[in-house]
């Protein structure tokens, strides 16, 4: 199809809105898992004895943080899917709907 130039401009604007919305959610989510995971590797490298702090029995802080990172990854993945389904996808449909074709379409 040949899209009408003005409608294409509107679609580009809609996509810029989508990108802004993605940034709003994804920047904090990315910072969260990067800090949590890379932070753990930094502690594993430089604060070995801290990670040996007892949590329960022989299960120490290091293993607790490892477990925490598993759970965090799964929770963030589920949050992402919910946000993408309910926020991003409708914006994509809106952008797609703004594009109208010039003359006979397809």
């Amino acid at each position: 199809m040949t899209p009408d130039a003005r409608s294409l401009e509107a679609a580009h604007a809609a996509i810029r809105e989508l990108i802004a919305a993605k940034l709003k959610y994804l920047v904090p989510m990315t910072i969260t898992f990067m800090v949590s995971y890379i932070g753990l590797t930094v502690l594993a490298g430089f604060a070995k004895s801290l990670l040996g702090t007892q949590v329960t029995g022989a299960f120490n802080l290091g293993f607790f943080l490892i477990t925490f990172n598993y759970v965090l990854s799964w929770v963030l993945a589920i949050i992402y899917v919910r946000v993408a389904d309910s926020v991003f996808d409708p914006m994509v449909r809106k952008a797609a709907a703004t594009i109208t074709s010039v003359g006979t379409s397809t």
């Binding site: 898992f33 990067m34 995971y37 890379i38 753990l40 590797t41 930094v42 502690l43 594993a44 490298g45 430089f46 070995k48 004895s49 990670l51 040996g52 022989a58 120490n60 290091g62 293993f63």
Partner: peptide, 25 residues
């Protein structure tokens, strides 16, 4: 012993731990 459940038994250099993490993510 407690040492077994601490980090650093395989990757001795702290920066190798970080490299491993960055390489994966």
């Amino acid at each position: 012993g407690a040492q077994y459940l601490l980090p650093g038994n395989y990757l001795k250099n702290p920066f190798d731990q970080i490299s491993l993490g960055l390489g994966y993510v």
